[in-house]
Design a protein around this nucleic acid. Sequence first.
DNA 1: TAAACCGTTGTTTTT
DNA 2: CAACGGTTTA
Length: 752
Amino acid sequence: MNPTKSEKIEDILEGLTESQRRAVCHGEGPLLVLAGAGSGKTRVIIRRIAYLLAQGVDPYTIVAVTFTNKAATEMQRRVEALVGEGVDVSTFHAFCCKTLRREISVMNRDPGFSIYDRRDSVRAVRRVVKDNDLDTKTHKPREMLNRISNLKNKVVGPEAWAEEAVSVNDRALATVYKGYEEELEANNALDFDDLLLKTILLFREHPEVLQKYQDRFEHVLIDEYQDTNLPQHLIAQALQGKHHNITAVGDPDQMIYGWRGARLDNMLEFEHDFPGSTIVKLERNYRSTGNILRAASVCISHNLRRHDKQLWTDREDGPQVQITQHDNAYREADFVAETVEELIEQGTDPGQIAVFYRTKYQSAPLEQAFGSRALQHQVVDSVGFFDRKEVKDLRAYLQVLVNPDDDEACLRIINKPKRGIGKRSQEKLLRYARKTGDSILRAAGHAAEIESLGPRAVRAVTAFHELMEEIAGFEYETIEGLIEKIVEETEYLEACDDEDRRDAAETLSNLMGYAGQYDEHHPDGDLLGFLEQAALVSDVDGWNAGASAVPFMTLHSAKGLEFDVVFLTGVEDHLLPHARALDDDDSRHELDAVEEERRLLHVGMTRARKQLYLTHCRERFSQGRKQSVEPSRFLDELPEDCVQRQSRRSFKRAGSASGFRDEMDRAIAAKRKARSRSHRKAGSAGQKQEKKKEKPKTPEGVLNPGQRVNHHMYGEGEVIEAELDGNMQRVRILFDTEGEVQMVLPKGKTFS
DNA sequence: TAAACCGTTGTTTTT
DNA sequence: CAACGGTTTA
C-alpha cells in the first residue's frame, strides 16, 4: 500500500526464527503457540499484534489479554514502540470489569458495583453463615468461600448446586452460596470470580450484547493460556465466535494456578474446542545458559502427566547451578545478601538480580540481611499494601461514596475512627436496614426512627451520617486531594495511638502518592476507575523494574519475568513442595498438587539467564517453633553434572553451646549488652521494661535520633528516626552527602 | 454498651 | 504471629 509498510513489516519480523515467524504471520483461523520457557513467547505476541496493525487491522478490533496489569502495560508500550499505535491490552478481570460497567444494566444491576476482594468476601460469607444460624466453627467461612469459589470457577451457580447437594454439608453450602449471592447483590458488589462469571452470563442471556463484541473483535490474543480457568476459556471462546481469529500462547509446563481452577485442558484440547486450528511449537530457548536449561528440563521431566517437549539452546554451558545448604533462614539470607554484594561489586546491575521464595513470609530475614548491608532491594507485594488496614479504611470511605449500597464498606468505617458506634448498635442498624431493605448508610439517616437505639447511639449514628453527607459533598480536583480531605475531616490520624500514628501516616501518604499517580496518568479518570484499579492490582504491578534494586518476590509473581541472576530460597520439603500439596485431604489429587509444585520450581529456575542459586536450610522457624527441615525432594532429581552442591553449615565449637555466630546471635548479644548498660545507668529502667505495656520508643544503646553515624557506603550522617519493629529496627538517616536513606537493621546492630 | 483485653485460631500461591 | 471472637472492665 504505502512504502513504509513493507519496511515496517521487515522491522517487525527482524531477528525472528522460522517458527516464530510462522506464529507472527499466521493468517486466519485459531492459532495455538506452545512456547517453552524462554522461547520468546511474549515477543511473538507483541510482534503478532504489531504485524496485524501493520497489515492495516484497526486496533479497535483487537483484544489482547495478559496475566497481570504490568504485563499489559508493558505489551502495549512495546507494540507502540514498533508500530506507533497501541491496542487495548488488559487482564481478563480488567477486561470483564470494563465490559460489565458498560453492559451490566441489561442484567438489572448497577454499573457502579463494588469489587470485593477475598477478605471482603469472607466477611460477607461469615455474615451469611450467622444469619442462617449456622455455626462458624463447623461451617468455616473461609472454607465455604473456597468451595463457592471453586463452584464459580466451574460455572456452577447456586441453583445448580442446590439441585446436586445431598449431604447435610453440601446443603448447608447451597444455603450459604445462595445467601452470599443475595448479599453481593444487595450490596451491589461482585467478587473476583463474578467479574468472569457475570460476563459469561451476560453473553449467554443477552445474545445481542455478545454479537456486538463478536462483531467488533476480529482478533483475540491471549498470553499465559495454560493458567486460564474454565470461565476464561469460555469468554475467549465467546469473543472469537464470529471471526475465529484467536491466538493463544502458553506452556503447559508453567501451569501454576491449578488451585485457582486453571485447566490444562484449555490448551490440550484446544484443537477440539477451536476447530481448524494451527499449532506452532517454540522449543528453542534463548534465555538461559546450558546448565540452567538442562537442570530445569530434567526437573520438569519428572512430571508424569506431561507431554514430552525438548527445549534446547546453543548457548554456552555457563556456571553450574549452585545448591547450598544453610543452618537457618538468617544464614541463608545472609548468604544471599553476601553473594549479591559480591555480584554488585563485580558490576552486576542490582535490578538484574532477583530473589524468589514460595511464601511471602520468607521475605523478612532477607529484608533484614539486605538492610544491614545497605543493599537496595524491593519487596514486590502491592497487594499487601492495599491490604493494610489504613488503606482498606480509606478505600472503604471512597467506596461508600461511589456505591452507598455497599454495606460491607460502610460497616468497615462506621466506627473508624471510634465514634461510639459499637457492635451492638451496628447490629441494630443492620437489622433495621434488612427489615426496610435500605442500605446501612440510608438507615443511619433515619437513626431516630430506630427504636432499639438509645439516645447516645442515635446521636453517634446521626453524626456519622452527617459526616458522610459532608464528605459526599466535597468538591475535589484530584483523588489524592479527596483522600487528604477525608483523612482530615474524619480526624483519622488523630484517633490513632501514638505508637501507630507514624506508621499510619506513612501508609496514608503512600496511598495519596499512589492516588496522585493515578490522577496524573488518568486525566479523565474518576473515583470508580481508581477503586477498580486498586481492587485489581497484582503484586508485580508495583514493581519498579527500572529501579536499581534487587526485587524479592514469590515464585508465582516471577512468572513471565527474567533476570541475569536468580536466587531461589527455601527449596525444602514442605515449602517447595509445600506441605499443603503433600497432604491429600484436598479434593485435588496429591500427585497433581506435587506436580504443580514441580512446575513452580521449573518456572523459578527458567527465569535465570546466567546464574542460578538454589538454597535450603537445615532448620526453619514455622509457627513460632524451630523445626528441622529436609532438602526438597526435587533437588535429588537434578542432574549432577549441571549442579554444584555445597554445605554452608557452621561448625559448632567444642564445649560451647552456642558455637555459631550469626546475625541473630550477634543481635541478641548486643541487646543484652545494651540492657545491662542501661541497667547501670538508669537503675529501674530495665525492670520497667519487663512490665506489660512499656514499649521502649527506641532500642537502648543502638541507634537513636540525633546520633551521628558513619556508614561504609553512605558516609557520615545523622539519625532522624529509629524505631523497633520485631527483631529489627527501622531507621531513617539523613546522610551528609547522599541524602535521606531508610534501612532496616537487625536489632542491636550499628554499622560503624 | 463501648472499648479494652485475652485466648484461640489457623498459616500457600492470587486475579 | 496475626486476626478474629468471646470476655471483662469501666
